[in-house]
Amino acid sequence: MTVTMKKVARRAGVSISTVSRVLSGHLNVREEISCKVKRIMKELGYTPNIIAKSLVSKTTNSICVLLPGPAEELFSNLFFMELIRGIVAGASRLGFDILISSGATEQEELEVVSQLLKGRRVDGMIVLSSHYDDAVIEYLNTNSYPFVLVGRSDKYDGILSVDTNHSMAAYDATSHLITMGHERIGFVSGPQDLIVSRDRLEGYRNALLDHGLEWYPEWIVEGESLQDSGYGSISDFMNLPNRPTALVAVDDMVTFSVIRVLKQLKYKVPDDLAIVSFNNIPLAELSVPPISSIDTRIYDLGAMASQVLIQRIQHPEHENQYKNRFIIAHQLIERESSMLAM
């Protein structure tokens, strides 16, 4: 026999509306009443009708994570796996479920976002990357849908975001190589339509400038080209006249490819080329040699993103009382790939 809310209320000696407020987590229910109702729910095996509850409250207690590209590619990237782990943990602590979606093109992403939010299938959205002219962010912002960006936007200063100070992180990575005795330092960048890539390139250049060092366009290589045709690209890079003796690489996954090709070409890290990378995924420590990497605290980025978004969803009336931009502090983890001075 189905246990109803009415039966729970009768057993607890309270009204149905009180049981409903306990289920919704309202603060105006006395602690002893709330504990009593929850105990009786457990004794009777009462399970709330989530669909009916969402129709009444007009909420789903779920948020969507929009992946920046096809899911089959991103789930092999340990950065996004760790980020999602943090998002799920942060949401679960607040009683929210996670829906993960993606689109192969910007138009597909827009369609996914529109269907989910217009259909009220989720209460808000977590966006995991940002381009300069980002149609998804523009759509969300224009229509005042609750969302948080993991990253930052050049066009919309006031949007809710959680990020690393990527410019300062790249500055710190470059400065570390300079303290190790390097004066010719190259840079492996990400796609230049991504704001994070431009911020890291800016930090790299600023560090060299502040230390009175030069940089040259041929010292800057895009990470995707190294992965697609790594052997030839690294060979050309290492054969440059007056080539760099050290490298700041866009992330650990790219660095694995660089180290592998360098070994094939009979170069040693860090003797022939010292490297500092980004994100400090667990495999960075297990690499040969272990990789010096900027720890961006990926898990904390994800957990913070879900928590601040849910806070806005649950308390929209307090929106103007909270700050909109949250920065997670980074840390350089020094390992063998950068530790030998030239």
Rank of each mutant, 00 (worst) to 15 (best):
M1G: 12
V3T: 06
K6F: 14
V8Q: 06
A12H: 06
V14W: 03
S15M: 10
I16S: 08
I16L: 13
S20F: 09
N28T: 10
V29G: 07
R30H: 14
S34H: 07
K36C: 09
I40A: 03
L44E: 08
T47F: 12
N49R: 02
A52R: 07
K53Q: 12
K53M: 11
S54H: 02
S54G: 14
L55N: 06
T59G: 11
T59V: 12
C64L: 13
L67T: 02
E73I: 14
L74C: 05
F75L: 11
N77S: 07
F79D: 00
F80T: 07
I84A: 01
R85G: 06
G86R: 01
I87N: 03
S92T: 12
L94V: 09
G95Q: 08
D97V: 08
D97E: 10
S101H: 05
S102H: 12
A104P: 02
E106C: 03
V112L: 01
V112T: 10
L116P: 00
G119M: 13
G119N: 13
R121T: 05
V122W: 01
V127F: 04
Y132S: 13
A135E: 12
E138F: 03
L140R: 03
L140D: 02
S144H: 15
F147E: 03
F147W: 05
G151T: 08
Y156I: 14
I159H: 10
L160R: 07
I178V: 13
M180F: 11
M180H: 11
E183D: 12
G186P: 09
G190H: 09
G190W: 08
P191M: 00
Q192G: 08
L194P: 04
V196D: 11
S197F: 05
S197H: 05
R200M: 04
L201D: 00
G203K: 01
N206M: 15
A207D: 08
L208A: 05
L209S: 15
L209T: 15
P217N: 04
I220L: 09
V221T: 05
G223E: 06
S225H: 09
D228S: 15
S229R: 13
G230M: 08
Y231R: 15
S233L: 00
S235N: 14
S235V: 02
D236S: 15
F237Y: 14
N239L: 14
L240A: 07
L240I: 11
P244E: 05
T245A: 05
L247H: 06
A249F: 10
V250N: 09
V250G: 06
D251I: 03
D252S: 10
V261Q: 02
V261P: 04
K263G: 15
L265N: 02
K268H: 11
D271G: 07
A274M: 09
I275R: 09
N279P: 04
A284K: 03
E285C: 03
L286R: 09
V288W: 09
P290N: 04
I291S: 01
I294Q: 02
I294G: 00
I298L: 07
Y299E: 10
L301A: 06
A303K: 09
M304A: 10
A305Y: 01
V308A: 00
L309T: 00
L309P: 00
R312A: 08
Q314S: 14
E319H: 11
N320G: 13
K323E: 14
K323P: 08
N324I: 11
F326K: 09
A329F: 02
L332E: 10
E334W: 03
R335C: 02
